[in-house]
Design a protein around this nucleic acid. Structure first.
Lengths: 199, 199
DNA sequence: TATTATATAAACACCGTGTTGATTTTACAA
DNA sequence: TTGTAAAATCAACACGGTGTTTATATAATA
């Protein structure tokens, strides 16, 4: 309680800086944004900025972590779910969340956004998921991995495209499309890309 | 002929700066690279740099354009070719080219690289290719586009992954894998993503 | 050899950076 | 209300990269 109240000021400062960054990143690449203008835009003293972050990238990364932790949990839930219908529901919820937070996520996922975020996202997915080989002599392990990469890249690319739309297609439709494509890519690879929770 | 000889010095300068940038980008993100160190590393005067480029990003973009013009022609050839076997040969040649120039391309396509390059690459592919609908009531035009996006994103993502490998799989294998996956994605979408040359 | 294009050199004002120490504001508790 | 911590502000600072200028040196050609 004590700490809560004490950090009210702090939380405002951080929020102001975050919003300022998002706003500026709509206009120009982060590399061209100076700490000075970032602070002036947020109406926060430059010294205060340095009390919290080291530079623009540090601030951005803090924002990314919030988003990544949501993604981590979503993936974890998807892995645990074996029932098709339940899986679809989970997927739909994910896309609902994205719609609700589209302002921030749009920036993170856009071409303007930090490529590091997408890198982390991929790394997280690969880490969470294991590729379990399905016996088939025609396709070796390395190639199976390639099919998996293809599916993940395709899905994330589609997600980016979806976010660009001003009138975003409903979450349900996205969930169905992604689900169908990922399944078929598995089929194509003649292997089962199993989401295993035991590693 | 006259201009050729005159530009020998110039060409050396530009090459030195390009190589210097590639070398530095292996070590750190481009945003952290200063013009000063870039020039010192290349042993080129800073004033000379400004005679050719405005900043690091400008230099990088010039490099990207070379690569993009190759990609543009490759896509154009692929579109013109209807025979499956000939198409495979063309694809193989593309991957051979990438192997030969892997030092530069690796940087451009990597997470360290400029996200703008990948953006241009996607834009170029989308521009070159048209999505011709195949009559099917279940899938509307918007969704078909989504399948196409998925295929392109997947292919490019796979390309990136392939480049990361120290021991890159042979060009032929990559050509086959990509070709098969793209075909199946078309099938999945219940539509023909036709590479049409008439637009 | 004279001419032209290009690269170098030194010097410059300018601006953002990151840090310091002193001061003010804010939230809360006695 | 008042005292006390924590946090934000302010002014000032040295530092270093930026982009431009002017003069000079080097290289390629005719």
């Amino acid at each position: 309680m004590k700490n809560m109240k004490q950090s009210r000021k702090t939380r405002y400062t951080q929020m102001a800086l975050q919003d300022s960054l998002v706003e500026l990143m709509k206009q120009k690449p982060i590399a061209k944004i100076t700490i000075k203008e970032l602070c002036e835009n947020a109406d926060i003293n430059r010294t205060t900025f340095y009390a919290h972050y080291t530079d623009q990238y540090d601030l951005l990364q803090k924002m990314e972590e919030e988003c990544l932790s949501f993604a981590r949990e979503a993936i974890s839930n998807l892995i645990g779910e074996k029932d098709q219908n339940e899986m679809m529901k989970l997927l739909e919820e994910v896309f609902e969340y994205i719609i609700d937070n589209r302002n921030h996520i749009r920036i993170l996922m856009s071409e303007q956004g930090d490529i590091n975020f997408q890198k982390q996202l991929f790394a997280m997915i690969y880490e969470s998921c294991g590729i379990s080989p399905y016996p088939d002599k025609n396709v070796d392990m390395g190639t199976k991995e390639y099919y998996f990469i293809y599916a993940v890249s395709g899905s994330v690319g589609l997600l980016q495209h979806w976010l660009k739309d001003d009138v975003m297609k409903p979450a349900k439709e996205m969930a169905e499309t992604i689900y169908r494509m990922a399944c078929f890519t598995q089929f194509t690879g003649c292997c089962t890309v199993q989401l295993s929770e035991d590693r």
